[in-house]
C-alpha cells in the first residue's frame, strides 16, 4: 500500500523535464513537452492531410476532412449565431488539441490535461473568449448589461459565474482526466496484463472524447450566450 501511494504520488506530480537557463531559470514541465509533441502531431497531420486539396473529384480523405470542418462550422454557427466565422477556427483548435491530448494516454504517455496548470490555461483561454466576445460584440455598456440578464436580481450570481465557469471548466477536465489516470494506474498496479487494455478503451478513448466534447460544447455555449441576440 505504501509502495502504491509513493508510486501514485510520483506519477501525479508534474516533474520538470528541464530548465531553460534564462534569468532564474524557466522550468519546463513534462506536460509542456508532451504538449509540444501533440502540437507536432497535429501540425504534421494537417500538412499531410491538406497537401493537395482539389476542388473537383476530392478523394476520400479530403471528403472526410471537409465533412469534419463543415460539421464544426455548422455546430459553431448553430450555437453562436451571426458572428460565428471568427470563432470556428478557435473552437476547432481547442477541440483538436484536447482530443489529441486526451487520447495520447493510449500510447502510455501521461496526457498533458492531467496537469492542472494546462487545464487552467485552457480555462483561461475560454474565459477570455467568453467575456472578450461579450464585450467585443455588445460594447462596454451592453456587455455590462448582459450581467443583469435575464433580471437585475441575478447580478451577483452572474458575477459569481464569471469565476465559477472557468474554474468549473478547468477542474472538470483536470479531475476527469486525472481520475481516469489514477484508476488506470491502480489497475496496472493490481493486474498488469489484459485488464488495463480493456479499461483503457473506456477511460482513455471514451472519457477523453466526452471531456473534449463537454469542454468545447460548454465554451461554445457560453460564448453564444454572451453574444447571441434575443430571438
Amino acid at each position: 500500500m505504501e509502495a502504491f501511494q509513493e508510486m501514485l504520488t510520483e506519477e501525479l506530480g508534474n516533474e520538470i523535464m528541464f530548465t531553460i537557463p534564462i534569468g532564474n531559470g524557466i522550468p519546463v514541465a513534462n506536460s509542456v513537452v508532451i504538449s509540444w509533441i501533440v502540437l507536432l502531431i497535429l501540425m504534421g497531420a494537417t500538412l499531410i492531410l491538406t497537401r493537395n486539396l482539389k476542388m473537383e473529384h476530392p478523394k476520400k480523405g479530403q471528403l472526410a476532412l471537409e465533412g469534419t470542418i463543415e460539421f464544426l462550422n455548422h455546430f459553431v454557427q448553430e450555437n453562436i449565431g451571426t458572428h460565428w466565422k471568427g470563432f470556428a477556427p478557435i473552437i476547432g483548435t481547442l477541440a483538436l488539441y484536447l482530443i489529441t491530448a486526451n487520447l495520447i494516454g493510449i500510447f502510455g504517455v501521461a496526457p498533458p490535461t492531467k496537469d492542472i496548470s494546462v487545464t487552467a490555461s485552457l480555462a483561461l483561454i475560454s474565459f477570455f473568449l467568453i467575456y472578450g466576445a461579450q464585450f467585443r460584440y455588445n460594447g462596454l455598456l451592453g456587455g455590462l448589461k448582459k450581467f443583469a440578464e435575464p433580471m437585475p436580481l441575478l447580478l451577483p450570481i452572474n458575477l459569481m459565474e464569471v469565476f465559477v465557469r472557468p474554474l468549473a471548466l478547468c477542474m472538470r477536465l483536470f479531475g476527469n482526466i486525472l481520475g481516469a489516470f489514477i484508476v488506470m494506474e491502480m489497475l496496472k498496479f493490481v493486474i498488469p496484463v489484459v485488464l488495463p487494455g480493456i479499461f483503457s478503451i473506456y477511460f482513455d478513448l471514451f472519457d477523453g472524447t466526452i471531456q473534449m466534447v463537454v469542454f468545447v460544447f460548454l465554451t461554445t455555449l457560453f460564448i453564444g450566450e454572451g453574444i447571441k441576440e434575443e430571438e
Binding site: M171, R172, G175, N176, F217, L218
Partner: peptide, 20 residues
C-alpha cells in the same frame, strides 16, 4: 442530446469538486 450533455457536465462537476 445537447441538453443532456450540458446537464451531465454540470452534475458531474459536483463529483469532480468532491474528488478534488
Amino acid at each position: 442530446n445537447s441538453a443532456l450533455l450540458l446537464g451531465c457536465a454540470m452534475a458531474e462537476g459536483t463529483a469532480i469538486f468532491g474528488f478534488i
